[in-house]
């Protein structure tokens, strides 16, 4: 059985847990270093990136998470989670894990009245065609390094990307019934 941790400082932890159960994985909330033992993969959920980053300061968890990144185990960050995976945040900076070689812009589409949902553009990676994407005060990648694989775009913008075993979605696959992104994570965890 594949056990997938979900960083549980704040955010839509339940929604990720439900999605994981539906693809046959066991979710585990992560609130301290010991919770990371024996995980097959890790999710950084949606929420507020400042809140989650400050929680990581308080719990002194940054080094453990950086170790997790370097171990090469699969990770998925959605929205706030994707921000925490970035190399750099352009506006309202927060500390990050530098797991994705890119610069991200927070709240890049505007406030909540500009939040929207859309299907992935034609030409998404095989198996991800027509992926429904819900964007909530979403971030946007301003620059991405050469080695990054773009799995899906919306309106031409990269919204689901992969560097090594690390997946980053600027949208919320956990808020839809479409489980393909969670399935991709769990399958890569073997």
């Amino acid at each position: 059985m594949t056990t997938v941790g979900i960083l549980a400082i704040q955010g839509d932890v339940d929604a990720h847990a439900r999605a994981l159960e539906r693809v046959g994985a066991t979710p585990r909330p992560i609130l301290q270093e010991a919770d990371l033992d024996g995980l097959n993969a890790l999710i950084l959920p949606g929420g507020e990136s400042t809140t989650i980053a400050k929680g990581l300061d308080r719990l002194d968890l940054w080094d453990s998470l950086r170790f997790f990144v370097h171990s090469g185990l699969p990770m998925l960050g959605t929205c706030a989670g994707a921000i925490l995976l970035a190399r750099e945040v352009e506006n309202h900076p927060v500390a990050t894990l530098d797991a994705i070689d890119g610069v991200v812009v927070r709240n890049a589409y505007g406030t909540q009245v500009d939040s929207f949902s859309a299907e992935a553009d034609p030409g998404a990676a095989r198996g991800l065609e027509g992926l429904p994407c819900v964007f909530i005060r979403a971030p946007r990648w301003k620059t991405l390094g050469d080695g990054i694989e773009i799995l899906a775009r919306v309106g031409g913008e990269p919204v689901l990307i992969r560097q090594g075993n690390v997946l980053a979605a600027t949208f919320h696959p956990e808020l839809t019934e479409d489980l393909r992104v969670h399935d991709l994570l769990v399958r890569s965890a073997g």
């Binding site: 704040q10 839509d12 949606g46 929420g47 929207f116 949902s117 808020l175």
Partner: peptide, 24 residues
């Protein structure tokens, strides 16, 4: 909302922001 959302979709987007505030 200018992005082709139906009423139901629009409600999910609203509830989505509330979901993001959980635990906070």
């Amino acid at each position: 909302n200018g992005n082709g959302g139906s009423d139901a979709r629009s409600f999910e987007i609203k509830v989505g922001l509330a979901e993001m505030m959980k635990g906070g």
